[in-house]
């Protein structure tokens, strides 16, 4: 489970292997800026019993090359492969107004303005046109994306674990698809020269 709500921990990276002979490890970071993974202090493993203090050596295309205090050679680094690295939610700085951590939004119960249950937020995505909340309806149907804007999402209550959603009204029926495509080709203005 990436973000453990019960223990309030957030997955920020994973050790993907050993690097070199001096005990360096390759880390796959899930933070916004990869090198920021070392800025949150010691990281814990999945059990919470072992902690790792990372020092970023360099950022590569495969991930971050980091040195872990206490790991001096490759033999010690190799068994760490696959170790997931967590931080406590408290270590994240308070977000600015109108900003929310993905970890806080995921798992919120979605309700309509009248209080009726809609489902659950399962992920947050950004495809270049603003943040989108992925809503999994309670009836088990396909997920849908809701733009994270005031008009569609009027209220977020992290303490209560709820988010109020005005589901967008989709206009245009599925039957229009073929009709529209053929119409589009006619009025496209594209030249048929070849």
């Amino acid at each position: 489970m990436p973000n453990n709500k019960t223990t309030n921990r957030i997955l920020v990276g994973e050790i993907s292997g050993a690097h070199g002979i001096r005990g360096d490890v390759l880390v796959r970071a899930y933070t916004g800026a990869p090198e920021a993974i070392a800025s949150y202090g010691p990281l814990a493993d999945a059990t919470g019993q072992r902690s790792f203090t990372l020092r970023v050596v360099r950022v590569t295309s495969k991930g971050i090359v980091a040195r872990i205090s206490g790991i001096e050679d490759r033999n010690a680094a190799e068994p760490l492969r696959g170790t997931k690295l967590y931080i406590s939610r408290d270590k994240l700085p308070e977000p600015a107004s109108a900003e929310y951590y993905y970890a806080d939004l995921i798992g919120l119960r979605a309700v309509a303005s009248d209080g009726s249950a809609l489902g659950k937020i399962v992920s947050v995505q950004n495809f270049g046109a603003g943040d989108l909340l992925e809503l999994k309806p309670g009836d088990g149907t396909e997920t849908e994306f809701i733009p994270f804007e005031d008009r569609w999402v009027p209220a977020v209550d992290l303490a209560a674990g709820t988010i109020v959603i005005n589901r967008p009204e989709l206009t245009g029926s599925d039957d229009e698809e073929s009709e529209e495509q053929s119409e589009g080709a006619e009025v496209s203005g594209e030249d048929d020269r070849s």
């Binding site: 957030i10 899930y30 933070t31 929310y100 951590y101 939004l105 995921i106 992920s123 495809f127 994270f148």
Partner: peptide, 28 residues
């Protein structure tokens, strides 16, 4: 900012569900 781009650029056909980490969403 999107003027001149194609609609398809903003609706990927394959969605990668990665980990949130410390990423933040901004409510507009």
């Amino acid at each position: 900012d999107m003027i001149g781009h194609k609609f398809g650029e903003f609706a990927p056909t394959r969605i990668f569900h990665g980990h949130g980490g410390d990423k933040k969403a901004v409510k507009r």
